[in-house]
Simulated assay, not measured.
Amino acid sequence: MNRPGRPTRLRRRQEYGLGLLGVVLAFGVCEIVGRAGLVRRSYLPPASEVLARAAELAGDRSFLDGVGATLWAWALGLGLAVVIAVPVGLLLGSLPVVDSAVRVIVEFLRPLPSVALIPLVSLLLGTGTETEVALITYASVWPVLFNTIYGLGETDPLAKDTLRAFGFGRPSVLLRVELPATAPFIAAGIRISAAIALILAVATELLSGFGEGLGIFMAQASLATDGTRDVLAGVVWAGALGLVINGVLVWCERRLFPWTPERRGSGA
């Protein structure tokens, strides 16, 4: 029956409907402004032309290869960030002494914008995929790291004490209680980092001007005569990729962690 989940599903459909309405309204405004000549077409082409160009690019092999290169750098950087952040987060969350010892360093590094490190990383690693992946990894580490630490702090102390009372050691408590309880927080951190990683992948290509990818396509289009339509078509592709990635990760969270309160309430 899943009666408690019906209001949540209805609310979710309403949110999707409102989101679609917002997209349609934004499309209509851009189309009207472009067609009416309120803004020069070289600055803001009609939305229909931009979408048509974005659809046309789906048949361009070289463009798709560039998108594939961006997604490869995105996946590699995000994967490295998870591999680094989860163990470090478990260590810092489990050992307050270690957390206190490195807290100043972490708080110093976290606010540094990744794009500001492009010149330094380029000097160290050269102008290639390595630099892009390094910057993506650096920016993507923080949400996963802090979500892991926070998740450990939210673990039920009674469950941990119960296992200790039955003679289970620290590794067993970590694997049987803390890690399963922290997993939804880690997943949420990965979802946040996935968006950051995509932004960094495109931005690094745009600002550095090397390699291949979606950002390189947009950077080259911005230098061409009347290239605004291609730039905006690239923006459409970047936004669409972000939506698809976020949707897939949200779906995975709902399937992997049905025991969390919000999942039980939604009847997922």
Score class of each variant (00 low, 15 high):
residue 126 G to P: 09
residue 148 T to A: 04
residue 134 A to G: 12
residue 124 L to D: 13
residue 142 W to Y: 04
residue 205 E to I: 05
residue 109 L to D: 03
residue 113 P to I: 09
residue 137 T to W: 11
residue 169 G to K: 01
residue 182 T to S: 11
residue 142 W to V: 04
residue 158 L to H: 08
residue 203 A to D: 05
residue 144 V to H: 03
residue 204 T to S: 13
residue 194 A to I: 09
residue 149 I to T: 04
residue 132 E to L: 14
residue 170 R to T: 15
residue 160 K to S: 10
residue 205 E to P: 02
residue 179 L to C: 06
residue 108 F to Q: 01
residue 182 T to C: 11
residue 205 E to G: 10
residue 185 F to Q: 01
residue 192 I to K: 05
residue 131 T to G: 15
residue 199 I to N: 05
residue 190 I to P: 00
residue 128 G to E: 12
residue 202 V to P: 02
residue 123 L to S: 09
residue 155 T to M: 06
residue 130 E to L: 09
residue 200 L to V: 15
residue 167 G to T: 04
residue 201 A to G: 07
residue 164 R to S: 04
residue 167 G to D: 07
residue 119 P to G: 11
residue 144 V to F: 09
residue 136 I to F: 06
residue 125 L to S: 09
residue 204 T to C: 13
residue 131 T to S: 15
residue 144 V to S: 01
residue 160 K to R: 12
residue 153 G to A: 10
residue 124 L to T: 14
residue 166 F to Q: 09
residue 152 L to F: 10
residue 184 P to M: 02
residue 148 T to C: 11
residue 178 E to D: 08
residue 148 T to N: 03
residue 109 L to C: 07
residue 176 R to W: 11
residue 146 F to M: 09
residue 164 R to D: 05
residue 201 A to Y: 10
residue 196 I to A: 02
residue 169 G to H: 06
residue 189 G to Y: 11
residue 147 N to C: 08
residue 150 Y to R: 10
residue 130 E to H: 09
residue 179 L to Y: 12
residue 140 S to V: 04
residue 168 F to A: 06
residue 201 A to R: 02
residue 181 A to T: 07
residue 122 S to A: 15
residue 177 V to A: 05
residue 195 A to M: 15
residue 139 A to I: 06
residue 200 L to I: 15
residue 123 L to Q: 13
residue 131 T to I: 10
residue 144 V to W: 09
residue 192 I to D: 00
residue 140 S to Y: 13
residue 145 L to S: 00
residue 149 I to L: 12
residue 163 L to W: 06
residue 134 A to M: 12
residue 175 L to I: 09
residue 127 T to F: 14
residue 193 S to V: 08
residue 200 L to C: 08
residue 153 G to D: 08
residue 161 D to P: 05
residue 146 F to E: 02
residue 185 F to R: 03
residue 157 P to D: 08
residue 204 T to N: 12
residue 126 G to Q: 07
residue 145 L to H: 05
residue 196 I to C: 06
residue 145 L to R: 02
residue 144 V to C: 07
residue 112 L to R: 02
residue 126 G to C: 12
residue 164 R to C: 06
residue 125 L to K: 10
residue 106 V to H: 04
residue 186 I to S: 00
residue 168 F to Q: 01
residue 145 L to Y: 00
residue 203 A to W: 14
residue 120 L to M: 14
residue 153 G to M: 12
residue 144 V to I: 15
residue 196 I to E: 10
residue 189 G to Q: 03
residue 111 P to R: 06
residue 136 I to A: 07
residue 131 T to E: 15
residue 154 E to H: 01
residue 129 T to W: 02
residue 125 L to Q: 08
residue 143 P to Q: 00
residue 116 A to F: 13
residue 136 I to D: 00
